[in-house]
Design a protein around this nucleic acid. Structure first.
Length: 254
DNA sequence: ATGCATGAGCG
DNA sequence: GCTCATGCATA
């Protein structure tokens, strides 16, 4: 495992086309699913993805579309595409959820075999020098392995991690060892403190979410006040909750 | 492994 | 203000 410091790759990000927002109802007064109703613990998870999804990027390229895609995702832009309305073909070996799932598992297994940690992989990615690809965090590697990323995110990361794996295994054969081993922690910066939403409040939020996953700003404010939480905390909580529903694990893909 | 957060990009 | 990709902090 090659350590190295000074990482901190600030890759670029993405964007995505539209969003939909609407829903003609607004129960502004029924703001208490827990106490006034009889729902305490429901199980959300009901995706019906509207027409969206995104594409993009890590760095500078890499585009991934909804479904369909070509092999070899990164480092170049795949040529043309079809615009056929009737081109609903192939279980696409690259976007196929099962293919991704299989790869993720293989990846993890081989990674462990190499004696490399998730964090190591993340940093090592920067050494691959792939165009537009910098380091990634342990979190991301972990999520990739456990499929807790969006389908598109998985597709975009797969070629990158695959490249790393091949490289790592190739070097492992040559029994290479790096003579460098500096690792001085930057030290100094301030730590961010993480808000922790208490269980009762979390249960309330879940209940609200089950009723309205996309509350208006005003509604969020009302909920925030009722639960005695900052409005932004509540807003972010809803955003994260929605994002969770879109992870491969939850998305009804298998 | 996962909770809460940031920031880019877009309407 | 949202979605999405991603990460720090933490359990």
């Amino acid at each position: 495992m090659v350590y190295h410091h000074g990482v901190g790759g600030p890759p670029s990000h993405n964007a995505r086309p539209h969003q939909m927002g609407h829903h003609g109802m607004e129960g502004l007064d029924m703001l208490d699913p827990l106490t006034s109703s009889s729902m305490t613990t429901l199980a959300p998870m009901g995706e019906t993805a509207p027409p969206h999804h995104q594409l993009h990027g890590y760095g500078a390229m890499n585009h991934v579309m909804n479904h369909h895609h070509h092999p070899g995702g990164l480092g170049h832009a795949p040529p043309a595409h079809l615009g056929h309305p009737a081109a609903a073909l192939h279980p696409d070996t690259d976007t196929d959820p099962r293919e991704l799932e299989a790869f993720a598992e293989r990846f993890k297994q081989r990674r462990i075999k190499l004696g490399v940690t998730q964090a190591d992989v993340g940093k090592a990615l920067a050494n691959l020098k792939l165009p537009g690809v910098g380091a990634l965090s342990q979190s991301t590697i972990c999520r990739f392995e456990s499929l807790t990323l969006s389908h598109n995110n998985m597709i975009a990361l797969k070629p990158i991690l695959q490249a790393w794996l091949e490289e790592a295994e190739a070097q492992a054969k040559n029994k290479r060892r790096d003579p460098d081993a500096p690792s001085v922690l930057p030290a100094g910066e301030k730590k961010r403190k993480r808000t922790s939403i208490a269980a009762p409040e979390k249960r309330s939020l879940e209940a609200y979410f089950a009723v309205q996953p996309r509350p208006s700003g005003e509604k969020i404010a009302a909920i925030a006040e009722k639960l005695d939480l900052k409005k932004n905390v509540v807003r972010v909580w809803f955003c994260n909750q929605r994002q969770k529903q879109k992870r491969m694990k939850f998305a009804a893909q298998h």
